[in-house]
Design a protein around this nucleic acid. Structure first.
Length: 827
RNA sequence: GCCCGGGUGGCGGAAUAGGCAGACGCACAGGACUUAAAAUCCUGCGGUGGCAACACCGUGCCGGUUCGACCCCGGCUCCGGGCACCA
């Protein structure tokens, strides 16, 4: 063992050794229980950033800890390798996307290896590899055959900069989630997955996910957006055209004073035809439908009379039909009833256009409302009035009763609406999984037969700066023959959203090299579900919702036997510098490479785990990094100074009665085992775990310095030193391995069993308690630890110093808390 | 507007079940070692007053419950995130 901590040499040596020994390979079958630890795989952008380092350091601690606890830990890594940046690089630098991507992967893989992460690299996957996307295509076809995948002509989100369509989830406040360009609307033929068929199950099963943060579950709940209500049908006067509205408040149907249709609603043109309103309506629709949803909904409410009226089937009243910008065509039925008295939007609209307001809910029997006095809508609960047979009914009951009545009369029905839309998966891009569909003039859209998979992405493609997919200009790719009739046919040139690729990679890791199937059912059964998933909260909806959907589909197809993919989810916070997210434009980026170069991987990992608990944002501090480095040096010097004594020491004999400093050293050792185990297992509070190891190391220093070498108990010292090395192993794996080997051990420290604490070592003879007077701290004192509350009270109360405290005061009550305090309440 | 988080020393953070606020680390100050510096080691480090023992104040603000509140309840405020004309 060298006197100096030479992290470079140590990290290189052990990384090579572990690789040569194949230390992190995990078997598919064994007697040990399984644990699946997964971190979100990265997009191979070129270099690791600190967010990656944090994500993977957290996962590595858990994986190593679980391994030491006796589990077979599946801890894989791979690459979310399809995507637009590869195409941009091709256009900009003339490098083919495949070359660019594989070069990046090679570099990032070596960076990950430099961090000393315990991945089973035999299981590496890359979504751009034909052996991976072949099965993505196969899964697409399984959904297709099940009717969960369809092509539809629809108004879709189009990003002009990315030159492709986007899923709803990828539009953030009207802008592209990737490049922030303003999203436009286009009418196109597009492929969708029928995720809406799973709305209710995706919602219901959120309750089963006890290991997920509430925040993420709430976000998914909101996104699915279940809303219970009724559809009610009104008939247009004259023509008899039916207008069905969706409402969550059927109890207010007697308060309807107008109807509103979305601008795109087919009846708008029909109803206004031939009325004096016709031109005005056409002009309004023309203007409004050009606007994006965001532009429409952020402007003031506007509407025009269509010239037609309809009859409220509940009270026979005649109300005008309008069209307005605040009604969305794609939600519900694209039509709403206007109840200004009890809906804020309707109130605002009615005030602007002078439409009548009719109160049909009173706050209570004694408290009424009048339309004239109202300054805002009354949306709370109350009693129904002006509502024919329903007068006097509490409105909550009224919702049920009106719906029931509508069903009996055939003018409506109860219904549940979801905000969730089907998942648009086709992309007009080259660098993605080709959609395995062939278009034949005779047979229509024909799925590519299984034996023809994969539909290979051609690599000899020309990129144009227009951004158009080069597949369109590649006849070798798109010209083919129909699998059904053999006539000439064309391939689909759209590729799949990369979120499709990342929605099943956790399953592929269970059978990464299987050439016969997407995964082995037995393998998936052994490893699924993922016990711990770790990644950024930015995937709360997109990736995590899609993966849940896929798993449910696979369950229904009999491909897996779990209904949820991720048992426990840890969403790590961002890495900040000077209070802001690291970014090139802000110039506050700290490069992992530089930190590893200067301080080593162990220091980088230790700092990032110590500086904050994983879920919180982490403020980067160069000083803090130095502190972590200093600590590792301190551990090194300690072990160096006692290495021979430790190596030669016997084990602590069970039951040995230690006293004084020796006893205290043992207490500290076993307390550290207890505390670090608790911090790493349940709470993932690595910061407090590390601080406990620091306390142990500080304690060993004191023990070494204050006790002469001859009086030192070698067994106690060795126990403390060995424990600190083992506890440090998941956090700083290289230095721990080196120290382990230098203190006379054989076998990797990472294959040692995680230590168990000895409860008898934690028992103290004396405890410090405080004496409070009316809850205020007055005195600290030491008492025997085994005192019962009554004994403790008597003992403390008789102490002269305490007598002095309470002299001349009337004692009202005394509250003894064993091992903690005694509170004396006096007057 | 609605729904989640979060406000604790100069800084990152700790207090896991209502029981000693500030563990651990950073920064800073003083000291030891050194010709000197770095490294290392030791000591101090919430505020105010005091030579000191000690006293008083102190977890965003106001109030409540309790023998006792960073922690529970009510009301506000500021910061971060999500959703937002979804009928």
């Amino acid at each position: 063992m060298q006197e100096q901590y030479d992290f470079k040499q140590i990290e290189n040596t052990w990384q090579q050794y572990w690789e040569n020994q194949d230390l992190y390979r995990v078997p598919d079958h064994s007697e040990r229980p399984k644990y699946y630890c997964l971190e979100m795989f990265p997009y191979p952008s070129g270099k690791l950033h600190m967010g990656h380092v944090r994500n993977y350091s957290i996962g590595d601690v858990i994986a190593r800890f679980k391994t030491m606890q006796g589990y077979d830990v599946l801890h894989p890594m791979g690459w979310d390798a399809f995507g637009l940046p590869a195409e941009n690089a091709a256009i900009k630098h003339g490098i083919p996307p495949a070359t660019w991507t594989w070069d990046n992967i090679a570099h990032m893989r070596s960076q990950l290896k430099q961090l000393g992460l315990s991945y089973d690299w035999h299981r590496e996957v890359a979504t751009c590899h034909p052996e991976y996307y072949k099965w993505g295509q196969w899964l697409f076809l399984q959904l297709y055959k099940k009717g969960l995948c369809y092509k539809k002509h629809a108004r879709v989100n189009w990003c002009p900069d990315c030159a492709t369509v986007l899923a709803n989830e990828q539009v953030v406040e009207g802008n592209c989630e990737r490049c922030s360009a303003t999203v436009e609307q286009k009418e196109l033929d597009q492929w969708f997955f029928r995720i809406t068929d799973y709305s209710q199950r995706l919602l219901d099963d959120l309750k089963k996910l006890e290991g997920w943060p509430d925040k993420v579950k709430i976000m998914q709940d909101n996104w699915i957006g279940r809303s219970e209500g009724a559809e009610l049908t009104f008939k247009a006067e004259g023509s008899g055209d039916e207008i069905t509205v969706f409402t969550t408040r059927p109890d207010t149907v007697y308060g309807v004073t107008y109807m509103v249709l979305a601008a795109e609603h087919p009846l708008v043109a029909k109803l206004s035809a031939g009325t004096p309103q016709e031109n005005e309506v056409a002009e309004f629709v023309n203007r409004v439908s050009k606007l994006t949803e965001l532009a429409r909904t952020s402007s003031e409410k506007e509407g025009v009379f269509t010239g037609a009226c309809c009859i409220n089937p509940f009270n026979g009243e005649r109300v005008p039909i309008l069209t307005a910008n605040y009604v969305l065509y794609h939600y519900g039925t694209g039509a709403v009833m206007g109840v200004p008295a009890h809906d804020e939007r309707d109130f605002e609209f009615a005030k602007k256009y002078d439409l009548p307001i009719r109160v049909v809910i009173h706050p209570s029997k004694d408290k009424g409302l009048t339309a004239e006095e109202m300054t805002q809508a009354y949306t709370e609960d109350g009693i129904m009035v002006n509502s024919g047979p329903f007068d006097g009914t509490p409105n909550r009951q009224g919702i049920r009763k009106v719906t029931q009545y509508a069903e009996e009369k055939g003018i409506g029905k109860g219904i549940i609406n979801y905000r969730l839309r089907d998942w648009l998966i086709s992309r007009q891009r080259y660098w993605g999984t080709p959609i395995p569909i062939i278009y034949c003039k005779k047979c229509g859209a024909v799925p590519v037969p299984d034996h023809q998979l994969p539909v290979l992405l051609p690599t000899d493609v020309a990129f144009k700066p227009t951004g158009e997919s080069p597949l369109k200009g590649n006849p070798d790719f798109f010209n083919t023959t129909c699998p059904q009739c053999g006539e000439p046919a064309q391939r689909e040139t759209d590729t799949m959203d990369t979120f499709v690729d990342s929605s099943w990679y956790y399953l592929r890791y269970t059978s990464p090299r299987d050439t016969e199937q997407a995964w082995g059912k037995d393998k998936a059964a052994r490893w699924m579900s993922v016990d711990q998933y770790i990644g950024g909260v930015e995937h709360a909806i997109l990736h995590l919702l899609y993966s849940r959907f896929f798993t449910k589909v696979f369950y229904d197809l009999g491909l897996v036997n779990v209904e949820e993919p991720f048992e426990n989810l840890l969403t790590q916070g961002m890495v900040l510098k000077d209070g802001a997210k690291m970014s090139k434009s802000k110039g506050n980026v700290v490069s992992p490479e530089e930190i590893i170069q200067r301080y080593g991987a162990d220091t980088a990992r230790l700092f990032i785990l110590f500086a904050a608990p994983p879920e919180r944002d982490l403020e980067w501090s160069d000083r803090g990094v130095e502190g972590s480095h200093r600590f590792l040096n301190r551990v090194w010097r300690l072990v160096y100074s006692v290495r021979d004594q430790v190596a030669a020491a016997p084990a602590v004999a069970p039951g040995t009665p230690y006293v004084g400093v020796h006893k205290e050293m043992r207490r500290l050792t076993h307390y550290a085992i207890k505390k670090v185990t608790e911090d790493v297992s349940g709470r993932f509070n690595f910061n407090t775990g590390i601080s406990t190891i620091m306390e142990l190391v500080n304690g060993i220093h004191t023990y070494r310095d204050k006790v002469a070498e001859v009086e030192r108990d070698a067994a106690v010292l060795a126990e403390a030193v060995n424990t600190s090395i083992i506890l440090l192993a998941p956090f700083a794996p290289h230095i721990a391995e080196e120290l382990w080997q230098s203190t006379g051990h054989s076998g990797s420290v990472h294959r040692q069993p995680w230590p168990q604490y000895d409860p008898t070592a934690l028992v103290e003879d004396e405890v410090e308690i405080v004496v409070q007077l009316n809850g205020k701290l007055r005195e600290r004192l030491h008492i025997p630890a085994n005192m019962k509350p009554a004994e403790m009270q008597q003992y403390v109360m008789e102490l002269p110093s305490v007598q002095e405290l309470i002299a001349g005061k009337q004692i009202i009550k005394v509250i003894p808390v064993p091992g903690k305090l005694l509170n004396i309440v006096v007057k």
